[in-house]
Design a protein around this nucleic acid. Structure first.
Lengths: 358, 358
DNA sequence: TTGAAAGCGCTAACAG
DNA sequence: CTGTTAGCGCTTTCAA
């Protein structure tokens, strides 16, 4: 198994001559194609092993597949993405496909560049995780490459969608806080960088649901939103902003756990305690939310299942499916110790059993 | 700017005929090569824009570069890796190079598969972040592809190294705890999955330094190590194990912030307080360590600089450098509120100003 | 069942 | 300064 050295890389021709067959035969063996005798297959396999041959991806790409799945994600710092990726990797495990990741960043231009990079590299399929691009932009890509979009709720005829029911999830969180007797419930939202995009981005849905549920409970006057971003820094500044408002909110629903962690810091810094002074709920139920010292009430959307499903749908599309599929995970509330009954209320609404996360 | 549709993709030949020049001319313009008149360059540029042409990576790869930097990292869940990546991206920003990431996982076999995937895709350079593979394995890859290794301290003649001085960093942490009057200082280490690897892996260095410094202070008898992994789960189980020992340690030095976060959970769960009952220090100074509610004392190794440097070294190697370079960042201790004077001690050793992180 | 041969899109000699 | 041409390693018709 040398060949990787300085010399010329082992090619299919080397294998062919070693096995005394044609390059065509080797190619067929590699792809498990029809029309090869068992004996020949054996000889080729042996030659491949002896020479340590590995097909060159670029050459394959010139004619067909690259056996590569491109994954676009905004930034790798979000632990929820790691869970999605774990699911995807699990699904791809038994196959010849390899996932490669690119970071899209916070703005649509950077994201376009990242997507182009995947297209230029002829990936066989693309998983877009929480993309910022417009629907038409996504569809343009999807027309040329099998695509699954994870996050936004814009159904399309040309790509598959995997998401959780953000409306149901946000409703769970807000209803939970209301049931605990809170009225001044604030929200940390993410700024929509993409103008003209309809209300289908997950953060938009979460925010609108927050507004709707508040209004439905006669709390329209208490609506208080800080629009920053779903990051630790965003949560931090958002919470600082909210805490400075008068009267101060008694609960904060952060649109993402990551933002909730930042909020936790700001709350702490302000000399306030969670949940005694302020209840805090997040979204994503990341692993960190379950850690005992954080114990953040959050909305669970099974990232592993979403990732696994995305992988499956992608493989199906690569195999030829052209009908669009939507897959929706139903989220669940995971109450923990960061939310508690509002000061001065008691026994009204549903009871909450503060389950211990993991 | 269509062409991405279902039809044939725009090729260099299309551009050439549109601009009334040869494909060679187009190729030269693409690569900013010598020997093109300004007028021709202009015509070609125009044709490229009009047609929305993008060079096909696979075809380029057949002849030479892929303009791709492959990044291998164990798992994207570690926030420190995100900082490294940010540095790399910043360095690659102005160039034509695109970074793609692959996850290596926790075991050397998975990592090998991931590395092979990069090699098969003919990346122009590889950045291995905290690889598990043996030095010889890394060198085999480096012989064929420009390589920079970030993390392990095994100098090599064929690849560049970027790391922080783990020995100095671990020393800072342990000395800090000792200066605070602690004697029963425990350590959470990472299991070495790669047998036969000399003591050059960063986690091995951190552990050995811990042992050395303890011994130098006459605390050899107090050495207490839990060997798990540099993950939240690892820190959690490691800390539980340590807390169960009698007598219980008064301080824990976790080899990585991620492990410290897990330890924090375990300590909390055991009904103990940080730093009143137990002081806790980490390594990496991840962003989360600086958050007010966590405020973890940690050792800072500038991830962004490491990533940026790695990118620069990689580009240099791609441009032809063959001499090996080592780049070492000097770490610094960032004391925060998770470490405090040991109970029952006072005023001995150096004073500590509990600086507030970020 | 097997193999010869024609490219895929691009770059790098080499001529003009 | 410009264009012609020969491949890179693989897959895929198409004959044998």
């Amino acid at each position: 198994m040398d060949g990787a050295g300085r010399g010329r890389r082992v090619t299919i021709a080397d294998v062919a001559s070693r096995a005394q067959v044609s390059t065509t035969a080797v190619s067929k063996v590699l792809r498990n194609a029809y029309g090869v005798s068992a004996a020949m297959r054996e000889r080729v396999r042996a030659a491949i092993d002896e020479l340590g041959y590995r097909p060159r991806n670029a050459a394959r790409a010139m004619r067909g597949r690259t056996f590569t799945i491109g994954v676009l994600l905004p930034h790798i710092n979000n632990p929820f993405f790691a869970e999605i990726l774990d699911g995807l990797m699990a699904q791809l495990g038994g196959t010849d496909y390899q996932a490669i990741l690119v970071q899209g960043g916070r703005d649509p231009q950077g994201e376009s560049r990242a997507i182009d990079a995947l297209v230029d590299r002829q990936v066989d399929g693309i998983l877009m995780v929480a993309p910022l691009s417009s629907k038409s932009g996504l569809e343009e890509v999807a027309t040329g490459t099998p695509t699954v979009v994870l996050g936004p709720h814009e159904r399309s005829a040309v790509y598959d969608c995997v998401n959780n029911d953000d409306e149901a999830g946000a409703e769970l969180a807000v209803e939970h806080l209301i049931a605990l007797g809170h009225r001044r419930i604030a929200h940390i939202a993410q700024k929509d960088r993409n103008q003209g995009r309809p209300a289908t981005l997950l953060h938009t849905i979460r925010e609108q649901t927050y507004r709707r549920v508040m209004a439905e409970h006669g709390l329209a006057g208490e609506i208080s939103v800080a629009t920053t971003s779903y990051t630790e820094a965003g949560g931090y500044t958002g919470a600082r902003e909210l805490l400075a408002r008068v009267p101060r909110p008694t609960a904060i629903f952060a649109g993402a756990d990551l933002a909730a962690f930042g909020a936790l810091a700001a709350i702490h810094e302000a000399g306030l305690a969670v949940p005694a002074d302020i209840s805090l709920a997040g979204y994503d139920n990341t692993r960190a939310a379950g850690l005992a010292h954080i114990s953040l009430t959050s909305v669970d959307q099974d990232g592993a299942i979403m990732g696994r499903t995305a992988g499956r749908l992608l493989l199906e599309r690569i195999e030829g499916r052209t009908t669009a599929v939507q897959f929706c995970v139903t989220p669940a509330l995971v109450p923990r110790r960061s939310t508690a009954r509002a000061a001065g209320t008691r026994g009204r609404g549903s009871q909450v059993s503060p389950t211990q996360g993991e």
